[in-house]
Computed example of a mutant assay.
Amino acid sequence: MKHANNKSRLLLSIGIPVILLSVFLRFGLYYLKSDGFSGLSLLLPILLLSFLLFALCTSAFFAAWVYQDCKKRGDDPVLWTIVFFLATPFMGLLIYFLRRSEIKTTCPVCGHRISVKAKYCEECGTHVEKEENSVMVRQGTHHLKFIIAGVMSMVLMLVCLAGFIVSAAAGNGINTDVASEDQVWNLGTISMNYNTYLDGVWKLDFRSAGEGFVKEQNMTIADPDTQRLYADISCGTVPDGATLVLWLVQEDTVKSVDVTNLSEPLEYPLNEFKNGKVHIRLQINGVEDTVSEIYIQ
């Protein structure tokens, strides 16, 4: 039994750091992939990461209490801890409270496990002294430190979540300026068939997107005097007032072209730009079923 408990503690001590490490790793990879969250205030990812960390802490503290409570009641602590994590903290606690076993004590005569509320042993009929029951009842809530830490983590988790939602809804710290040199962040969604950038060719095929949604790809200008931007774009569905605008942004040089109804591929000169990276953006305003191929040559 002692060996099993040590093994359970070892699994928990390894599992929790692994979960935390995976969260930090995923956050770091996303940070690198998004060019350091360019266009997004650092407050928002910090709030989001804090929410995830406090959510994990909440789960860990309540799971620790469930583990100890199971041991006290003679249940399988590892099994209930796994159930708790799979069901998420709130549902896990609810299921546990509904299904957990009653606290029992041992009959002083035959050793049979009986309820602490029982007056007589179910096995041998021995009268159980009330003093023994009183001692069990007066034990109070055990491992209170886990409950307090879990509640504090839950409060901090909700505060971070509320701060993230309020800041995102208000647009604070989010760059939505399509003419900005920084990355444009979208609060809406896009339904894509594919989005690829291979050998300098950007291919985007989408069904629909939120109003004003901006999809972008960084390209490189090697010789602005001789190179041109080529855009072959076809909008399958164009409701009244819908548009698709192509933007070229490089520092203070910003150009835009309405490419909603191109009769032939666009050839756009780049002599007003300079060597280096340029942001190529498609601002989607209601068009649907669009196929595009854009490159610099």
Rank of each mutant, 00 (worst) to 15 (best):
G171T: 09
N172T: 14
I174A: 04
N175G: 03
T176L: 08
D177Q: 10
D177A: 13
V178P: 00
A179G: 14
E181F: 04
D182E: 15
D182Y: 08
Q183H: 10
Q183N: 14
W185R: 07
G188L: 07
T189D: 13
I190Q: 02
M192K: 15
N193M: 09
Y194T: 09
N195R: 11
N195D: 15
N195T: 04
Y197L: 13
L198M: 10
L198W: 02
D199S: 13
V201T: 14
K203M: 11
L204Y: 00
D205T: 07
D205P: 00
R207N: 14
R207G: 12
S208L: 08
S208A: 15
A209V: 04
G210W: 02
E211T: 10
F213Y: 15
V214Q: 06
E216C: 05
N218Q: 13
N218I: 14
T220Q: 12
I221Q: 03
I221L: 08
D223K: 12
P224C: 10
D225L: 15
D225M: 15
D225V: 12
A231Y: 00
A231N: 03
A231W: 01
D232R: 08
D232E: 13
I233R: 02
C235K: 01
T237C: 06
D240F: 04
D240V: 12
G241Y: 06
G241H: 05
G241I: 10
G241P: 06
L244V: 08
V245M: 14
V245I: 15
V245E: 12
W247I: 07
W247S: 03
V249E: 07
Q250A: 11
E251I: 08
D252I: 13
V254M: 07
K255W: 07
S256R: 14
T260W: 02
L262S: 03
S263T: 15
S263N: 14
E264C: 01
P265Y: 04
E267A: 14
E267D: 10
E267I: 10
P269D: 07
P269S: 10
N271W: 10
F273T: 07
G276M: 12
G276Y: 11
R281S: 11
L282E: 07
Q283C: 10
I284Q: 01
G286F: 03
G286E: 07
G286Y: 02
E288A: 14
D289H: 08
D289G: 09
T290F: 04
